[in-house]
Nucleic acid binder design. Structure first.
Lengths: 227, 227
DNA sequence: CACAATTATTAGACAAGGCTAAAAATATGT
DNA sequence: ACATATTTTTAGCCTTGTCTAATAATTGTG
């Protein structure tokens, strides 16, 4: 995946927001439906249709009417650039400025639109070329390459397994605050105690501290690796 | 000067740009003429007239047709907030990321529009509550207060005077690069050798290094204090 | 002081990006 | 399979911020 040939491109904030939404939805659902995009951006579906037409003309995506949008290589490169900027700024906000990991999203959302390749590269170097952001998500490098981790959902673990939390998917503020209140964060190690079949909830015990219960909604979104 | 009562206010980028331009021009020329504003923003005078009308309705400035614009207290507070953000980001870019002081303006111009009071306050603390930016310009504090320095223009100095450069006014990229190439920067100490009456140029000698000549255009924009 | 030059405003157009309401295409349930 | 529900698109309108061209006010000059 190359980020080259994207420099001369100058996109509006709205165009960038659409591209990033499509990228995220495609990663999550396998496709990006018009309604899903509009919901993510708090706009109406008709506005999204217009924008899809426009971005298709700019060769940033393919738009199959009534099916959805698929980013071209060029569009994917733009999206990765945005993800890169977003996650680097989140890292800066948490590691350097002392923000909580649950309060950085909105600010990073603004900072990711500051367009300066030099800025992003220098920021990355200043932060020590991190490969993962404070939520555990991978930070694409200058060329769009992503370091993969072989993780699974906590949900899929059985009793006795000892795992370390490495990422939180679907990072809504509500979920992040809930985790914070239970003392769960990136790096926390847990042992699964018991899984309750009827509602999918599970009892877990942190290395230090006493056991408690997590609903399936929560364990679903915790990405873990063996520990 | 209070920055309170400005929080609930949400301005577009263009509105903010106009307010800042008016603030800067008023500081420099004593007034902000329509043409001067449009030149600064690379737009046309008619566009500025429209915007002045709009901002006057929002009580951010007084617009006397055919005279110009004058910021209200509320408008001044917004402007100071923007100046604060701009200079803090410039300081970050130079001191932390290692940018040259002549390449930060454009990027800071984008970053100053990121709206988060918490971000700005934390950034200020991270930088050690600086009172002056890399160009020597004062950074307004949270409440809009500016630390003044009793400086004069190098232009106004006579032979034998020993002075330290503390600021550069009218910071165009061209001027900044010229200074850089002569080894002149904030903190440099000089002794005035001779002033030539016919063109206002002056010979100066840095503490370390040999003497050279500066045109009036340059010495005009160097702010110095006795050393 | 009168008239030219400059500066500012008004009037009307346009592109971007959003909206609502209605129509068209696709998906679903019995 | 056919009627209904859902999703997407189209059509037309609105606001913001810009422009050009024409007009009006102010300033400068012989």
């Amino acid at each position: 995946m190359y980020l080259r040939g994207v420099k001369e491109l100058s996109l509006t904030r709205s165009e960038e927001d659409h591209i990033k939404a499509i990228h995220t939805l495609t990663r999550r659902d396998g496709r990006a439906a018009t309604n899903a995009i509009s919901e993510r951006l708090s706009t109406k579906a008709s506005s999204v249709t217009d924008m899809l037409k426009k971005l298709a003309e700019k060769r940033l995506l393919k738009h199959e009417p009534y099916y959805g949008a698929k980013l071209t290589l060029k569009g994917e490169a733009v999206a990765l650039q945005l993800v890169r900027r977003h996650r680097l700024w989140e890292t800066f906000l948490v590691d350097r400025l002392g923000f909580g990991w649950d309060e950085v999203h909105e600010v990073a959302e603004q900072m990711e639109h500051v367009a300066s390749e030099k800025l992003v590269d220098k920021l990355e170097a200043y932060l020590g070329h991190p490969h993962f952001d404070p939520h555990g998500d991978p930070i694409p490098d200058k060329h769009g390459r992503i370091r993969q981790r072989k993780t699974k959902s906590l949900d899929s673990c059985g009793p006795g397994e000892s795992v370390r939390i490495v990422a939180v998917s679907e990072t809504t503020d509500g979920l992040l605050r809930l985790l914070d209140s239970k003392g769960l964060r990136i790096g926390t190690t847990l042992v699964v105690q018991e899984v309750h079949a009827f509602d999918g909830s599970m009892d877990v015990k942190p290395k230090s501290g006493s056991a408690f219960s997590l609903s399936k909604d929560v364990s679903d979104h915790l990405q873990v690796e063996p520990s």
